[in-house]
Amino acid sequence: MSDALTRYRSADEDSARWQGFPFRPGDIVISTRSKSGTTWMQMICALLVLRTPELPAPLTELSPWLDWLVEPPERVYARLAAQRHRRFIKTHTPLDGVPSDSRVHYVVVARHPLDAAVSLHHQGANLDRVRLAELTGQPAPPEPAHPRPPVGQALVRWIDADPDPHAELDSLPGVLWHLGDAWARRHQPNVHLVHYDDLRVDLSGQMRRLAERLGLEPPGPDLVEAATFERMRARADRLAPDAAGVLKDRNAFFRSGRSGQGRALLDAAARARYHSRAAALAPPDLLAWLHRTEA
């Protein structure tokens, strides 16, 4: 097990909460960027582990977000310690910020960065930021000086921004840092990369593949059906990540789940700029895998 971890902090997350966490053999860590299929993968793991489409508790209780500052760490640790089923734990921390343990499986979901950025933009409008600040002990956010830009304009700004990836993990540099770190570990037997578009195109096949890699029984049709976007959206009250009441609308969390929406918002020049920036931030083989569904 490695103790040399990179620390990632934001207003509502701190990866230091992983330090010293007592893993169990077989634990599953779900490490994703925001709006890249986190809740989807949590649901898939819940179905594969618990073997029923009728989950015994809300998904956030079954699969806690360990490094979210909204809930005290001792409460999260106690809930995980009390679980008797195989545990599957959520994080938005890259794998270099999570302890590496050969007994543990690490699942990283990759989504086309432009699609994730579009979803993140819409998610921003659905967050109760006053409530979030209250829960994390932060000052109340000021009223915005200007209205939110249209999604297409915001996407162009996101492509052009160049923050430190460690400081802004949901930026383009941050997304590709997270995926690049996982890509470099992909040959390790307990690190599993899953492409969001593969889940969309062949959910049953991808669930069977993941079950095999995790040493679990393959899913039946009822479990696959329960993991579809339509079924999950219909059960947003129990599946949306909103145990603390920070979403204005739980149904809006499951907005569309489509792919290709980011590229469709850009003209040819902006798409070329995106690809040029991505090429400077990630290796060609990762980008070929990440972008392979582009027309």
Rank of each mutant, 00 (worst) to 15 (best):
residue 276 S to Y: 07
residue 29 V to I: 09
residue 119 S to F: 09
residue 234 A to R: 12
residue 260 G to L: 01
residue 272 A to R: 15
residue 67 D to F: 04
residue 27 D to L: 10
residue 209 R to T: 03
residue 290 L to V: 02
residue 187 H to T: 13
residue 259 S to V: 06
residue 127 L to K: 14
residue 25 P to H: 06
residue 228 T to F: 06
residue 262 G to V: 09
residue 66 L to T: 10
residue 148 R to I: 02
residue 112 H to I: 04
residue 75 R to H: 12
residue 68 W to V: 13
residue 274 Y to G: 07
residue 283 P to D: 12
residue 289 W to G: 02
residue 227 A to W: 01
residue 16 A to D: 07
residue 198 D to E: 13
residue 104 V to F: 02
residue 174 G to S: 10
residue 289 W to F: 05
residue 58 P to N: 12
residue 217 E to G: 08
residue 207 M to I: 06
residue 205 G to R: 13
residue 267 D to I: 12
residue 285 D to P: 00
residue 218 P to E: 09
residue 1 M to W: 10
residue 190 N to D: 00
residue 51 R to E: 12
residue 61 E to M: 12
residue 18 W to C: 00
residue 81 A to K: 10
residue 134 E to T: 06
residue 109 V to D: 11
residue 102 S to W: 13
residue 208 R to L: 03
residue 286 L to Q: 01
residue 288 A to Y: 06
residue 54 E to Q: 10
residue 148 R to Q: 08
residue 204 S to F: 05
residue 291 H to L: 15
residue 206 Q to S: 11
residue 171 S to W: 05
residue 250 R to W: 14
residue 200 R to E: 00
residue 24 R to I: 07
residue 112 H to P: 15
residue 73 P to F: 06
residue 91 T to P: 00
residue 289 W to N: 01
residue 33 R to L: 11
residue 65 W to G: 07
residue 243 A to K: 03
residue 149 P to K: 03
residue 107 V to W: 00
residue 135 L to R: 04
residue 92 H to M: 11
residue 188 Q to R: 13
residue 38 T to N: 05
residue 116 A to I: 01
residue 81 A to D: 12
residue 179 L to P: 03
residue 52 T to Q: 08
residue 96 D to T: 06
residue 175 V to D: 00
residue 177 W to M: 04
residue 222 D to S: 11
residue 211 A to Q: 08
residue 228 T to Q: 12
residue 197 D to V: 12
residue 272 A to T: 03
residue 220 G to A: 05
residue 20 G to D: 04
residue 148 R to A: 08
residue 105 H to C: 07
residue 145 A to P: 09
residue 241 P to Y: 13
residue 211 A to H: 06
residue 206 Q to A: 10
residue 20 G to A: 02
residue 218 P to R: 14
residue 272 A to L: 14
residue 31 S to N: 04
